[in-house]
Amino acid sequence: MATREVTRPSAPATPPAGRRTSVQRTKLWGTLLALPTAWIVGFFVSSMVIVVLLSFGRTQRDGRPVFGTRLTNYDALWNEVYLRLFLRSLTYAVVTTLICALIAFPVAYAIALHGGRFKSVLIAAIVVPFFASYLIRMYAWSALLSDDGVVNSALRKAGLGGVQFLNTPYAVIGGLVYGYVVFMILPVYASLERMDLSLIEAGKDLYHGPLRTFFSVTLPATRAGLFGGMLLVFLPALGDFVSAQLLGGPKTYMIGNLIQQQFLEGQNWPLGSAMTVAMMIGLTVLMVIYLRATTTRNREQA
C-alpha cells in the first residue's frame, strides 16, 4: 500500500534500544516499594523465621533459649493433653464460625435489603463497637456473667437460682462470636449489596416460598462473601486466648492460652515456638484445602 511506501526524509534513526530512556516506566514505584518492603521483611518475615528456627532449639539450664536442630519440641506436642487441647480449639473455632454465619446472614440481609435510609448508620453501629477495645468488651461479658454479676443476681431475684456461665465452653464460644462476628457480617453485607435484587423477585416467582428462594438464589449469590467471612472469623478465633482467659478457665483453654503460657509463664520458648509453628502449619493446610474447595465451587457456580 502507498501508505507504507513513504519516504522518510527527516526521520532520524530510532535510538538504539539500550540507550533509550523509557518514557513510561519510572523507578519511582520501585523506590516507593523498597522501604516498606524492607521493613516488613526485616521485622515480620525475619521474626517468623526466628520462630521456626527456635522451634528446633532447647532451653538451657539457666532458662535461656538456644537454637538447635532437634525435633524434641515437636515430639513433645504428641501427647494426649495437648492433642485434646488442639482438638478443643479447633472445635471452638469451627462452632464459632458456624454461629457467626447463622447470625450474620439474617442481620446482613435485613440491613442490606430493608435498611433503607439507615443502612450506613446501622452498619456503622455494628462496626464502631467492634473496632473499639476487644479487651474491654471481653471484660464486659465477664462482669455481666460473673456469679455476682447482673445476670445472675437477676436470676436469683426471680427465684431461679444462679447459673454458672463463666468457665464453660458456652461462655468462651460466646465471647469468640461476640469478638469476631463483624468479620462475617461485613463481607456478607457487601455481597448482598452487590446482588441483583430482581434475582430474589424472580426466585419468588419460580420457587414459591422464601425458604426455597433463599437456598436456591440468595445463598449462592452471596457465597463468595460467606466463604471470605468464614475465613476471617476462623483465623483469629483459632488463635484467640483472651476469651478463654477471661470467660473460661483451664478446662476451656485453647492453643492461644497454651502458647501464651510457654512464653510468658512457663518460659519454655522453644516449645512455645513449636506450638506456634504447628498451629501455622495446621492453619495453612486447612486454608489451602478450604480455598481449593471454595474456589472450585465458586467456579462451578459461575
Binding site: 526521520a11 518514557v23 513510561q24
Partner: peptide, 11 residues
C-alpha cells in the same frame, strides 16, 4: 508519551 513505542519515531 504515556506509552512507549516498540519501534518507530514520534515527532
Amino acid at each position: 508519551g504515556f506509552t512507549d513505542p516498540t519501534s518507530g519515531t514520534v515527532m
